[in-house]
């Protein structure tokens, strides 16, 4: 039996109103297992804002503060300040935003909090589009994807914004990618983020959306795992914006991941090749940084 599961239902109540197989729910379950009950979530507009319970309900056994769409990070900063002023430095304050609330409308607020080094964990559960409003493109939507605002032949021709690099450029104390299909790695990273108090921590969570992606609900985990196994979503950590550690990359071709999803099914072999080349290049860049980190660490150890 998994060690992490000491309580039966963890910190959530059943009966949430998420779609069957919703990856955001899985992400919340994993995260709360690692974060524990002394946690406050700040949730901007997004699917999870609804999934977590419409009035008068809540799906969580930790407090939630719903915020407007653009401002989850700074709202969390405010909560942190309020708690600190009352002497509560123990409770972890987490902003829990979708990709829209992170990459797009929430980016300014996130950047502000990260630059100030506010003592919060910012989590982006990334389902690669505005799902709550019915699958519109965001700047996290990957190349090749169809959404309701990149329909038909107008499928998205630009690549996904690299939010991890943006956060690294802020030199946040800890940034990590996590995937719902890798619960141990996922929970380790959340536990680590929880412990790294006093600074901004950022976790980019890959959370599949069967509804928006055109995959069977039962494949929510399978598809998420494929994202990492094809290196589309490698698992890695960045400390202080400079030190990279790779936890999991992939060995499968991107086609294994793309061709099984409705949102990509129009892609021709040339398109797949293009995505493959891009993924390879991104992976090589990460590997370069990992190697540079190792060289640097060895140098300082020997010095």
């Amino acid at each position: 039996m998994s060690q992490a599961l000491n309580t039966d239902r963890g910190l959530t109540y059943p009966g949430n109103v998420g779609c069957p197989g919703c990856g955001a729910n899985i992400a919340v379950n994993h995260a709360l297992r690692a974060l524990g009950e002394k946690t406050i979530l700040v949730i901007p507009a997004c699917c999870y804002a609804i999934v977590s319970g419409p009035y008068p309900q809540t799906a969580l056994k930790v407090p939630i503060l719903h915020s407007a769409f653009a401002c989850s990070a700074v709202t969390a900063s405010g909560v942190r300040a309020g708690l600190d002023m009352q002497g509560d430095t123990e409770t972890t304050v987490v902003a829990w935003a979708g990709d829209g609330g992170t990459f797009d409308i929430g980016l300014q607020s996130l950047s502000g909090a990260a630059e100030r080094g506010d003592d919060i964990i910012f989590v982006c559960y990334d389902n690669e589009a505005y799902m709550n409003t019915g699958v519109q493109r965001s700047s996290s939507t990957p190349y090749g994807s169809r959404t309701t605002t990149t329909p038909g032949q107008g499928w998205k021709k630009t690549r996904k914004k690299n939010i991890m690099e943006i956060m690294a450029a802020h030199r946040v104390a800890y940034a990590a990618t996590a995937n719902i299909a890798y619960p141990d790695d996922f929970m380790r990273k959340f536990a680590r983020a929880r412990e790294a108090r006093g600074a901004t921590r950022f976790i980019h969570v890959f959370a599949s959306c069967p509804t928006g992606w055109g995959v069977a609900s039962g494949h929510a985990i399978k598809i998420a795992r494929l994202a990492t196994r094809t290196s589309v979503f490698p698992l890695y950590e960045i400390e202080n914006g400079t030190d990279y550690t790779l936890n999991a990359g992939g060995d499968l071709p991107v086609g294994d991941y793309l061709t099984v999803q409705g949102r990509f099914k129009h892609l021709a072999p040339e398109d797949l090749a293009l995505v493959q080349a891009e993924v390879d290049r991104d992976m090589a860049l990460i590997q370069e940084k990992v190697a540079a980190t190792q060289v640097r660490r060895a140098f300082f150890k020997s010095a």
Partner: peptide, 8 residues
């Protein structure tokens, strides 16, 4: 724990 300002 309460949820403040959920959907109404």
């Amino acid at each position: 724990p309460k949820s403040l300002y959920p959907m109404v």
